[in-house]
Write a protein that binds this DNA or RNA. Structure first.
Lengths: 339, 339
DNA sequence: TTGAAAGCGATACCAG
DNA sequence: CTGGTATCGCTTTCAA
């Protein structure tokens, strides 16, 4: 078998030669609105198909750069996939981008010291814009990205300095809805377990929860925070909670991962019956629906979040402006299960 | 506040002008091996930093394309993130790529009819190579990618036609090790639950399992297969298994997601004590370690898989050849937990 | 070591 | 509708 050398790339000139037309004609054949005779186009496309020719997106972006960015590259900036909520989110995002004919360039600045490099890559590759999953990123990293001035949209957290648009779930509503559920079950001693104290989402959910409870005459519940949003943290926090406040009869966790951990801790302590204790999470990750858990939770409207984020990003790219940022808070959906 | 227009991109010419040198000099300043006076370089770099200049990777790749591909873009081709094993895998891959100064371009061909488009994008963007997570992809999709002739490495499944290298966990060893565990516990009526019957990984694990059992005098165990590798499928399959073979005393599942589903089904049926029943999974997803599950499993050597895959891909890119493909099977690691 | 000039692949403008 | 030509930003000969 002969060592199949990879053939040099087919260029517009090759196609032009074989089709007996000019390079311009080839270009036009691939431009939908271009004025070209249908027959010519068809013939060019036929030859192109035969040769396996596709316009070089890199070269195209180069010449089009006169009229604004056009690489078709959108950076997706994410931290670790440590929360089971993120993969789902991420795949939705990628597919939505693909549907638009754009390409997702993944940037994970959490590898040691790679933030700097990641930033430079964004510039080097002429990304048109960035979707920043700020919920999974340190505030510093988020800030560094925004300083770039590249059109961007924040997902899951707003920019404290209000420089760019942010799309997020209405976290206060999440907390309030959780409180309503607790109240509707007649609980008197609810508690809250959150993530990092500096996490916007966690804090807002906590506030919504507490304020609604207080407005109904329940004292400020015990609140624990954690270094992260993991199962393990939820497990540990719940154990501590039961130790310090054994009479707790309802628990709202800032995310499902925490809640699932908490549920297992409650189980260990024999505190699982929904008629004596209620547990609520937030996100609606797949595991929440597993028969072993059946976690009551507030679902984030993933599809809506993604679509809105892309909409805003595209607008921002098109207008070339960074001003007039908006903050969109989308309503969560209450999903009642066994807990 | 004035409408902060995004400034036109800084080019090499801008830097050249301000530094009082030629464009060539600027280029050389950014080329490590170039022959340029250290002072000149330093001065250029200083001005560049000041202006926030970075060489346009797209333009660079264009001119360098004479000497072979150089976009720095590596396609990562994946199906859905339906299995909790994939995100971890994926993030490792991305970070490893970043560490090499390359960029991960994500391609998810599972959105309806997007396979075709995804392929075209790969060509258009001059990707240097592709890592194909074939385990999460339909064989047809995998095949279509390979037909492109782009250097590629398969992850999690080998190419039936042997055109490219494949890196995967030694799946027979997985099955054998599972069988050893079952035997060591003195079980007599084991069973197997797999994924799609056409899935290479699932099939090989099954074979390793069965053959080892038979070599020790145990009859061919009942084997169920499923439409996918999900928790739900594992749950349903285990229920059916208990119905059809109520005397089963050990169960090996092709992946952890299936195994976790099975465990919950077993639990419902009161068949969970490790002294009467053993359950084994494969992958070692985070949930397997949760207190509520404590699943005994065979861990895939993720880091090794990723590193090997990249090594092979880079070699294949460098040599520009598609021949001499290898198949690497890496040993799994037995992780004993409560099940 | 340096600058001038050619060219990578494609598109847009301008005559025809 | 069509073909020539300038240009995008950069690297790379080639002389100096």
């Amino acid at each position: 078998m002969k060592p199949k050398q990879r053939p040099r790339n087919v260029t517009a000139s090759d196609v032009a030669r074989l089709a007996g037309v000019s390079r311009s004609a080839v270009s036009r054949a691939f431009t939908p609105e271009a004025s070209i005779h249908p027959d010519t186009r068809e013939q060019v496309l036929a030859i192109a198909r035969e040769l396996g020719y596709r316009p070089n997106a890199l070269a195209r972006s180069l010449v089009k750069s006169k009229q604004g960015p056009s690489s078709g590259l959108i950076a997706v900036v994410m931290g670790e996939f440590d929360n089971p909520f993120q993969p789902h989110f991420f795949s939705q995002l990628t597919q939505a981008l693909q549907a638009q004919g754009r390409v997702a360039m993944l940037v994970m600045p959490d590898a040691q010291g790679s933030l700097e490099e990641a930033l430079e890559r964004l510039i080097a590759y002429q990304v048109e814009g960035a979707i920043v999953a700020a919920g999974s990123l340190s505030p510093e990293a988020t800030d560094a990205f925004l300083a770039l001035g590249t059109p961007a949209v924040l997902l899951g957290r707003e920019d404290p300095r209000g420089r760019v648009s942010a799309i997020l779930t209405d976290n206060r509503a999440v907390g309030e809805r959780a409180a309503d559920y607790v109240l509707s079950r007649g609980r008197q001693r609810p508690a809250f377990i959150g993530g990092r104290a500096d996490g916007q989402a966690s804090r807002e959910r906590q506030q919504g929860f507490i304020e609604r409870l207080q407005s109904k005459g329940i004292d400020a519940p015990p609140c624990l925070s954690n270094p992260d949003y993991s199962y393990a943290s939820g497990f540990a926090a719940a154990q501590q909670l039961l130790r310090d406040h054994p009479d707790t009869d309802a628990l709202f966790c800032a995310c499902d991962a925490l809640a699932l951990g908490a549920m297992d801790a409650l189980r260990d302590a024999g505190r699982t019956s929904p008629s004596h204790f209620n547990l609520i999470g937030c996100d609606d990750v797949p595991q929440a629906a597993w028969p072993g858990y059946q976690l009551t939770t507030l679902a984030q409207p993933v599809e809506l979040l993604v679509n809105q984020a892309l909409d805003h990003l595209m607008t921002s790219i098109a207008s070339g402006r960074t001003d007039a940022p908006e903050v969109l808070r989308l309503a969560p959906e209450f999903v009642q299960r066994r807990s």
